[in-house]
Write a protein that binds this DNA or RNA. Sequence first.
RNA 1: GCGGGCGUGGCGGAAUUGGCAGACGCGCCGGACUCAAAAUCCGGUUCUGGCGACAGAGUGUCGGUUCGACCCCGACCGCCCGCACCA
Length: 878
Amino acid sequence: MSPAADQPTRNDPPAYDFRSAEPRWQRAWAERDCFAVGDTPSDARPKYYVLEMFPYPSGKIHMGHVRNYTLGDVVARYKRARGFCVLHPMGWDAFGLPAENAARERGIHPAKWTADNIAAMRAELQRMGLSLDWRREFATCEPAYYGQQQKLFLDLLRAGLVERRESWVNWDPVDQTVLANEQVIDGRGWRSGALVEKRSLAQWFLRITRYAPELLAALDHLDRWPERVRVMQAKWIGRSEGARLRFALETRLDDHAEIEVYTTRPDTLFGMSFLAVAPEHPLAARVASRDPEAAAFLAECRRMGTSEATIEAAAKRGYDTGLRVRHPFRPEATYPVWIANFVLMEYGTGAIFGCPAHDQRDLEFARTYGLPVRPVVLPPGEDAGHYTVRERAYDGPGRVINSEFLDGLEAEAAKTRAIAELARRGMGEGVVNWRLRDWGVSRQRYWGCPIPVIHCPACGVVPVPAADLPVLLPEDVTFDRPGNPLDHHPTWKHTPCPACGGAAVRETDTFDTFVDSSWYFARFCSPHAAEPVARAAADHWLPVDQYIGGIEHAILHLLYARFFTRAMAATGHLAVEEPFAGLFTQGMVTHESYRAGDGRWLYPEEVECRPDGTAVERANGASVTVGRVEAMSKSKRNTVDPGAIIARYGADTARWFILSDNPPERDMEWTEAGVAGAWRFTQRLFRLAEALPPAAAEPLPVALGPAATALRRATHRTIAAVTDALEGFAFNVAVARLHEFANALADAERQQAAASAADGLDWARHEAMQTLARLIAPMMPHLAEELHARLGGADGRLVVELPWPEADPALTVAETVTIAVQVMGKLRGTVALPPGQAEPEVIAAAVAEPNVARVLAGRRIVKQIYVPDRVVNFVVAG
RNA sequence: GCGGGCGUGGCGGAAUUGGCAGACGCGCCGGACUCAAAAUCCGGUUCUGGCGACAGAGUGUCGGUUCGACCCCGACCGCCCGCACCA
């Protein structure tokens, strides 16, 4: 029988009809409000906040969502059963470019497109049977949300955490918009194909760099975060220690008298052979203003674009400005100043001193332009008289040479010494440098949160007064020409200045959508509050105890949220510094890919897989190439629609399979056979419950037969094992233990025929089945309710209202243990004994085991190792 | 290049963290039921030898520590992920 088959025939055993059961239980939970919690519950239960990364409303859920929300729901339901008061909300990350693209391509208003998508996805999520508090739902595109975000922004502005400044951006001249680095492909806009320019624009920045030290240091305390996420964040923040020093120009150039440089290697200063500045460095512009050749070089650098592939492939190139700088320790020595394409304006000071012997990039540059290579750090075991640098620069430890007062010092000591000397001469100082840059949040887009400021020709930038919030997006916008619709709206941007009353214009940029997702977890605590967060609610619920989502957000989203939490603490909105106490990053859902002979990718449902491993296209029987198992993607068409799976097999089956095959942090392969297996298991459990005789007498029978005792032990060992597995996020192991338990119940069913009623087996089977229903509940909540109800319920209470089963310690210890008997570390037999036997008894049983006795015959036992209840090992001679 | 992770049957994986390797599922093989099929149920399934009891080999490779190693240490090979001209 398969779920696609027609009605069961008369002789078939009763089947579990998820189609009627799942909606029925979803209604029951909704009617009883099982998952609603208050903003500040006066509840003795401890709080637990489970959150999955909220989705972008693309219109359809995908398998990644199913995995994400199933994992979260298991945690939420389990914690609820364990006596926690659980907050488990859901919402929509609803601003963003796809809505505008839909508007341009299909003429649908972004608001309508988004609302329709949300409605469709909400219905799909509800069919999954997630234990969500839907009363807390919000979408970030609602004024009730983004208006509060505007308030928050103005608070940050007052606190000095916001700055407006010029910055270089990728500008698409056709679409008239700023592009992110990943939207620039081979120097061209991903949408328009136009050559991207680097432009300097006034932009809003959030000063995340202020918190760089805290954001880095606190990583050490996030012990429930994956190590690799912490490592990625630490590298992103990028702390380095070095020196900032100034090189005097031999002759000044207008107002430029010196060049400031950052270095982590002040110990190699005597190995310098040139100085280089970034193409965007102010000095470069100054040189170019009077040197056409320099200007041409800068133009070429700008054209190179920002795509990583281009940068990586680019050779080191430069332009000699003709300027020279003095060495800080040797005023008589001067060095050429170059403009070099490999120097980054964004890092350090945008200028470096080049020491080719000890830096690979400098070496490549020096070799290209014939600059000297002078070693000043001698690798251990090398001879100072003969040491030369060849293909590779040396950046390891060693003793300093050719460096006057630094000679003889170890490189590390020389750094300290060089910095002290720079400071003494007033030419530099030791500094800590950070890679992290301030967060540019301006986007030239319509479908985002308006930045609530007004530009007045007289007063400058004026914040929108609180009474005028929210700054609403105008609805009557057109997408018939490129650029930001807010910018060419006829009336919206014109407004009187709040300060002087004169004519002024609104800021037409909107926020980066990462801003929306940087505080939504806090808003969920009090989603209807008239302020960004109600303090009492936030203080009660935060931090999120368990956050679950994809690894792709390891850096930006999580770092921004950590920053926002600190900024909101600084402005009095929150009391916590870290938003997420526990983080779990799930693996991807993968699937085989299929390709027709003519190269077309085929969807799994278009392909029939034969038992011999070959595959053919259903439509025409043509043979199909089975490709790699890889992440589901539309381009490869190796996607499976969760809606279709749930319609065919039910939500419980989908949930069970997605939990069963792999550890959740690893990638999992979605297979038809796997879902079908999960579906069979749901039916099997239903049959096991249906096969039980009517509810047994309530009290525990005085005398239990061996079969009943064994089943009770299995029941209580399973409780302990499943509890351990769920606590450790080992959901696949929990599934395995429940499979074993079902097997034990099936064994008991067979034994029942041979047992007499006095053995108490029917009682034990009821206990087992009722326990099973409650243990599967976090994973298969609908089936759990169905089984529970058929077993007689519990005074009308649902499974979701019952506590987690408790294992009886007396029943979790084994009656007998099987002790392995080894000779010289090799297994030769086993003995079954009651646990806790004294060593002499165990040894006696071990040597008596026939096969062990055979192997030991004629040999002398030199030593015996005894590990209680586990193993005996004999070391023999002869 | 730097950083992190992972290598266990035909496949996904398990192993109380140094103590019976391969739980559980998928697949496959055999059997029961059936006129037949589907479904269901039962049994088997790391490899080699043996009818068998059993023996030998076995957790990427090589070596080490240990009474005992998938687990700890060293070297190497392969794969995956992240970052990368960061001075």
